[in-house]
Amino acid sequence: MFFSCKQEDAQYIIDKAIEVSGGSLIDSSSINFNFRDRHYIAKRHNGSFSYGRLTVSSKDSILDILTNTGFKRLVNNTPVSIPDGMVLKYGSSVNSVHYFSILPYGLNDSAVNKKYLGKVTIKNKPYHKIKITFNKEGGGEDFEDEFVYWIDVETFKVDYLAYSYEEGDDTGLRFREAYNERYVKGIRFVDYINFKPLDKHASLLLLDSLYSIKGLKELSKIKLEEVKVE
């Protein structure tokens, strides 16, 4: 019974976090933004989606499009053939940026598992701490990645998140602190300060403790620019 109650807590908290971030508005929306010299557009409608990434150079424009039915690339508006081995890589890259742009939306997908880890304090504020894992089926290429979310006890906003990743021989941990919160047509957007642990043997579940004692190193800032919602 205790385990069941904890799982229900996690579900309730995630539901509230999605709600206060504009989840129902995201269900049917068109979201545009710029990120690291590329333009992104996401169109969603009742479960159907089309995620685009436009890269413009001095010679070419490359438009990558990921939908429910697959991935395609257009170079100067002309479809081009992509090797099978690269389709998954390109599609995952496009999906990743769109996924992070509207967190915690998406955490109620059927492949997502939630585990309540209790309450913790960061910068004198209480947070719900929730671990997220993914099923292999429906969990995407990076289904083995694990996430932790710190959700404000009072506002139910995600202020911090962390994750583990594996990319070939490269593995690691990242911790993100949200800042520059703004609402665009009712949808919450934030930027992130991106950290990694100084200790290469650090645990994902203890990154909040390391953050509190300055055991993390800032790597970069994750900024969404010129966000527009229709």
Rank of each mutant, 00 (worst) to 15 (best):
T67Y: 11
T67R: 02
L74Y: 11
V75G: 07
N76W: 08
N76I: 02
N77D: 15
T78S: 15
T78H: 11
S81H: 12
I82E: 05
I82N: 01
D84N: 13
D84V: 05
D84F: 07
M86D: 15
K89V: 12
K89E: 14
Y90M: 13
G91H: 02
S92T: 10
S92E: 13
S92A: 14
N95R: 03
N95A: 15
V97H: 09
H98L: 14
H98E: 04
S101K: 10
L103W: 03
P104R: 01
P104T: 01
Y105F: 14
G106L: 09
G106S: 07
N108S: 11
D109K: 11
S110T: 06
S110V: 11
A111W: 02
Y116P: 10
L117T: 08
L117N: 07
L117Q: 10
K119Q: 15
K119N: 15
N124D: 15
K125Y: 14
K125H: 15
H128A: 04
I130D: 05
I130E: 05
K131T: 00
I132G: 06
T133D: 03
N135L: 05
N135M: 00
K136Y: 08
E137D: 07
E137K: 08
G138C: 01
E141V: 03
E141Q: 11
E141W: 04
D142H: 10
D145Q: 05
D152W: 01
V153Y: 03
E154M: 03
E154R: 06
K157A: 00
A162L: 04
A162Y: 03
Y163F: 14
E166L: 05
E166W: 04
G168E: 02
D169Y: 09
D169I: 13
T171Y: 10
G172V: 04
G172A: 04
R174G: 05
F175Q: 02
